[in-house]
Every structure is written in C-alpha cells, then in structure tokens.
Amino acid sequence: MVDLSVRIGDITLQNPVTPASGAFSWEYNDVIDLNRLGGLVAKTICREPRLGNPTPRMAETEAGIIQSIGLPGKGIEYFIDHIVPEYAKFKPPLIVSVSSESIEDFAALARELSVPDVDVIEANISCPTRNSTGGNFAMHEDHTKKVIDAIRAATNKPLWVKLSPNAGDIVSIAQAAEEAGADALVIANTFLSLKIRTDNFRPALGNKFGGLVSPALKPIVLRMVYQVAKVVKIPVIGIGGVTKAEDVVEYMLAGASAVGIGYAGFRNPTALVTIIEDLEAWCDARGIKKVTELIGAIRDDDMETDTLVAASVGV
C-alpha cells in the first residue's frame, strides 16, 4: 500500500489532504473521523473578539460562490483556552491560522499562540477584504517581507504563510516570504470579487466585496503553485478548487507537497475522507510506493506537440 505521508519542514502529515482555514472546524467530527486527515486547520483567529461582516455573507454566482465573513471569532484568549483543547483531542497536527492589521500585533499574536498544542502557525497575510497595509500584506513584496520577518522573530513554531492570488506577481511575494524565514507557503486565498443584484441594484454581499471560491479557479492556482514551486526551496501547499483525488495528484505534480480543501467539504461533508481513500487507491493502482514521488513530477521538459492529443485529455 502507498505511503501517503508527506513532510512539510519539520512536520509530518500522514497524508497530503488538509482542510482549508475558515472552511473547517472540529465540529466536522460529527460527520467524518478527523483522525484520518493530514492536518487540522483552524479558522483564522484575531486578537480581539470580532463579530465579522454584515450578512448576507455568501452569494452564489454562475461560476462559484463569493463570500465575505470578516474573520469573526471570540479572540485569542478564548481560542487558546477553549478551541485549541477541542482540536487537541485529535491526532493530526494543529495548524492555527492568524491575522492582524499591524505587524507588531501579528508578531505578538504568533508568540502568544506558540503553546504546546499548536503545531504550526499559518500567517494569513492574504485576507482579500483587507488592504495591503492592514492585514492583506501579501499584496506587496516589502510588506510581506516585513511582516514575516517580525513573525519569524517571534516564534520557533513552523511558520506557514498563506499568499494572495490577487497580487500582481505571486512569485516575488513567495520569494520574499521564503527569505523572511517561512517554512512553507500556502497558495492561495480567495479571489476578490463583486456581485450586483439586478433586482435592487445593491451588492449581493453585506460587505460588498467577497472572495470567489470555485473549482474553476483550480487551473489558475495550479499555475501559481507551479511557478512558485519552481523557484522556492520550501514546500508549497496548494489550495483552490480541489474536489477529487486527481486534483490532489495534479497539485502535487505541479510541485505542491500537500493540498487544502474548502469548497468540496461544503458540497460533500465526507469529501476529505473520500479524497484520501481515492488517492490511496489511485496510487496503489499505479504501483506508486510513496505519494511524495508525485511532487513536482510534471513532465514538461519532453512535451508532445500533437494538439489533438493535448485537447483530448479528460478532466
């Protein structure tokens, strides 16, 4: 049977399938066995209790959903005292996503979150509805460098950095994060979007703008993962539009060491476990002994140029 385990820096995941921050909580244990996941990823936490954005927080479009939640939560104290222990009941490593509007506070939060039951700090520097100096640092290289430098100095925990697909040149931002000491890059957060209702001329979301979430974005994020993985030495975690085991394979071929899944778990609450089982079967059927063989294994140096062959590949 295939060995599905992957290493992300000093952390070993039993398989490359993790949930995406904000699209998951320990409450999913009602429907799936959380001990089967590669990791547990908590919703992005901020210092103060926050109510989040006005409703409606989600709207459907022709090609996916747009959402703007606004990082609601009960604040860091409550998180450490009440939510971390909920996750600590399960075996997979706990990845805690964190966000702040100021560099100093971001670093302080990372320090305070460096408690024994937290295995990884994921710096969410890419919340699409914040601006580049106020939390969405991943829009600019220099802001990225500054904030990750500060967080790096504040914690010895493995540090993953979640990047934005809205930045002009994600490769330079990824390099800035690597240079500042990130242990892994998470690519990517959601695409900033807008929907306007034609019945009353109002934005469909209470917060006006929201992040687009859709399997249609997978080819775009896959391209970003490929470009970044080519130039950085640290592992990349691909997030965007994974709905089946072949999508995990595709991200790994592009250079990702693991994936994160949001939407598919909304559509099918059992999806993450099914994808893990399907991935195992997919590898076994092909005699793949270690799933890590797939990482970066895209064959793009001896390209066939028959356009008919290229056009007929299934999805």
């Binding site: 904000g22 009602d30 429907v31 919703k43 409606p56 609601p72």
Partner: peptide, 12 residues
C-alpha cells in the same frame, strides 16, 4: 438564514 457549511464552521 443563508447557509454554507451547516456544521458550524463557516459563520455564514
């Protein structure tokens, strides 16, 4: 209310 996850995870 409009829902996404139904499990308490997304705060929609």
């Amino acid at each position: 209310q409009i829902m996404v996850c139904g499990f308490g995870a997304c705060y929609v």
